[in-house]
């Protein structure tokens, strides 16, 4: 039989095999091996030891603090994301594009810079530090500081999922609802929300993963007080530096599990149309949001 020449580049079996082999080998080193190390180390002393390190009071407290931080920061961020997306996509006003850029700025800023910046607002050497101390209000080295720093690093997560989608969907459905007599809340709940619910959930899930895993910014504002202001990532560092490797990896395995669940939910939501990849390129509003790689960008 007459074999057709390849009509696309890289379709020859040798090229295919080499490329797939190269990619799988590097993925094994950079992605699979770190995962294997985490679980391998966490369970290296057996299941009983694993359970006992997780149940240690400091680690348990760190888990609770991390969950509490997420319970406060994620809903506030979600509210901000919805408000920002509504303002930016449903109205025209001067400075709209600038606002979109401003919303995305925290993604470009190193967590260390974010943490340092918060010190100069609420710290003793900062803007409000002395006044706060006089009033005996603790923001830094306490829960409020951790929540604020987490909100900074995750500020764009929900908005950036909603803005391109709501921009692409336009305003006509909402305008029709208003002309039929619906009030603002009804329009949002009955018209907008059903259209964006998967994208919203997508943003919330990614935001939550980042809040629970944030390290750099939180490590500056929390003060690393053992058993008081250590979130789970900080507790991991503390255990690791104490040469309690198994304890550190046991704590790390919880966050790894969260990361894997996040990835799974992400794949499920992408199948329902959330995330950028499934959206046609044309749906990206020109001039409003440049295409960014989807997912948990810094």
């Amino acid at each position: 039989m007459n074999r057709r020449a390849p009509v696309r580049v890289g379709e020859k079996p040798l090229a295919r095999r080499l490329l797939i082999g190269f990619v799988l080998a590097l993925s094994a080193v950079f992605i699979l091996a770190p995962l294997a190390v985490i679980f391998g180390q966490a369970f290296s002393m057996g299941l009983g030891y694993f359970a006992s390190t997780i149940a240690a009071p400091d680690t348990r407290h760190a888990i609770l603090l991390t969950v509490l931080t997420a319970l406060i920061a994620v809903p506030i961020n979600t509210g901000f994301g919805i408000a920002a997306a509504w303002a930016v996509t449903k109205f025209d006003f001067p400075g709209r594009r600038l606002l979109v850029v401003l919303i995305e700025i925290p993604f470009s800023i190193s967590p260390i810079v974010a943490g340092t910046a918060y010190l100069f607002v609420y710290g003793l050497q900062g803007l409000f530090g002395p006044a706060l101390q006089d009033a005996d209000i603790r923001i830094l080295f306490a829960l409020p500081g951790i929540v604020l720093a987490s909100m900074f690093v995750t500020a764009p997560f929900v908005a950036r999922e909603l803005i391109p989608l709501m921009e692409a969907q336009g305003r006509s459905e909402e305008e029709a609802a208003v002309s039929l007599g619906a009030n603002g809340w009804q329009v949002f709940r009955r018209v907008t929300l059903p259209n964006v619910k998967w994208a919203l959930l997508y943003g919330v899930v990614l935001c939550n993963a980042r809040v629970m895993g944030e390290f750099g910014a939180v490590s500056i504002v929390s003060g690393n007080i053992r058993g008081q202001t250590n979130t789970l990532p900080l507790q991991i560092e503390l255990l690791y530096n104490d040469y309690n490797t198994v304890g550190a990896f046991a704590a790390a395995s919880i966050l790894t599990l969260l990361a894997l669940v996040t990835l799974a939910v992400k794949v499920l939501l992408e199948a329902r149309g959330a995330g950028r990849r499934s959206r046609p390129a044309a749906a990206q509003a020109p001039g409003v949001a440049a295409p960014r790689p989807e997912g948990l960008v810094p």
């Binding site: 770190p34 190390v37 990896f249 790894t256 992400k266």
Partner: peptide
């Protein structure tokens, strides 16, 4: 599966990645 785990470095907290890579 490969397509899904490409995003692992974004989903995995950096401190976790740090101790895993150091140990590796």
């Amino acid at each position: 599966l490969l397509d899904a785990v490409v995003d692992l470095p974004f989903a995995l907290p950096t401190a976790v990645a740090g101790i895993a890579l150091t140990s590796l």
